[in-house]
């Protein structure tokens, strides 16, 4: 349980981060943020980076603020920052509700929002939030900056479109209109375990009918994503238990379920059906 030898680099600025990445990424270098996923797999020697570029002392990356119509989350912002709503309105509440499902308190005090996205575990709550809310991601390298839609960022199980020399510096979550309703439900074996399926829904009610429905599913497929089939069931309809059942059914049918030794595709669909409906029920409470 001791990691293979590595060299740690401690840049102080974003420029130093991208320079270090340009230099060391080809030599098996990686970014170290909160380390809550990377360090354990290094201890198992399943990951053996030769170089770690530790961003924990980089100025400015801890910025968490509203810029115009989005919430900007810097690469050093820890999960624990969201324990209390970071802004007024539904987005702050949504993030505060979701964050309590991420692992355990000590992990939340170290792990980072952007680190979760870059790690791209299919069960990540923040990947689900980013996918459901159509986050935009600011990616930097010595070659310049680019802004990537979350749908183009998350590619599969622990796989993103980040190039070897690129660094996820910031995530941008669109602010939600004040009348946005949201619901989140996660199923895991024990409190704090990885989600076996989770659903996040947001929508608005206009003249008693649902509009702008976003239904995101995490933990069930190789990446978190919105499920348009379920959103189509909801949009234009008045909320009702029957409608929520139908949306759950649509989501369960639409997914391409992950399977493992204990979990069949059928069971994963059962969970998606349940978590989707329950997230919708919670949105009305």
């Amino acid at each position: 349980m001791k990691p293979a030898p590595f060299t740690r680099h401690v840049p102080r600025t974003v420029d130093e981060v991208v320079s270090a990445l340009a230099e060391f990424a080809p030599l098996d270098g990686r970014i170290l943020a909160g380390g809550q996923s990377l360090v354990p797999i290094m201890a198992f020697r399943m990951a053996r980076p030769a170089h770690l570029i530790d961003i924990n002392e980089v100025e400015g990356l801890d910025r968490l603020a509203v810029d115009g119509d989005y919430l900007s989350i810097g690469a050093r912002v820890r999960h624990g920052a969201f324990h209390k709503p970071v802004i007024d309105g539904p987005l702050g509440k949504l993030l505060a509700f979701v964050v309590s499902h991420i692992a355990h308190y000590p992990i939340r005090m170290r792990g980072t929002f952007c680190g979760s996205l870059a790690h791209a575990d299919p069960a990540s709550e923040w990947c689900l939030v980013a996918a459901t809310l159509d986050a935009q991601l600011v990616v930097k390298s010595v070659r310049g900056d680019r802004i990537v839609d979350v749908t183009d960022f998350l590619e599969g199980i622990m796989s993103t479109s980040l190039a070897e020399d690129e660094f996820l510096a910031e995530a941008r979550l669109p602010l939600l209109p004040d009348d946005t309703k949201f619901g989140f439900y996660e199923f895991s074996r024990r409190a704090g375990d990885f989600a076996m399926s989770a659903a996040l829904v947001t929508y608005r009610l206009v003249d008693g009918v649902i509009t702008d429905a976003c239904v995101g599913i995490g933990g069930a497929e190789d990446r978190a994503r919105r499920i348009p089939e379920a959103e189509n069931v909801l949009n234009g309809q008045a909320p009702s238990p029957e409608l929520f059942v139908a949306a759950g059914e649509a989501a369960a049918t639409a997914i391409e379920p992950l399977e493992d030794a204990q979990t069949t595709a059928e069971y994963r669909r059962d969970l998606v059906r349940a978590v989707t409906r329950r997230a919708l029920e919670r949105s009305t409470q």
Partner: peptide, 13 residues
């Protein structure tokens, strides 16, 4: 082979 896969109960359970 890890305690993320072999699941002893915690105080929550």
């Amino acid at each position: 082979s890890t305690l993320a896969d072999f699941l002893p109960p915690t105080t929550h359970e």
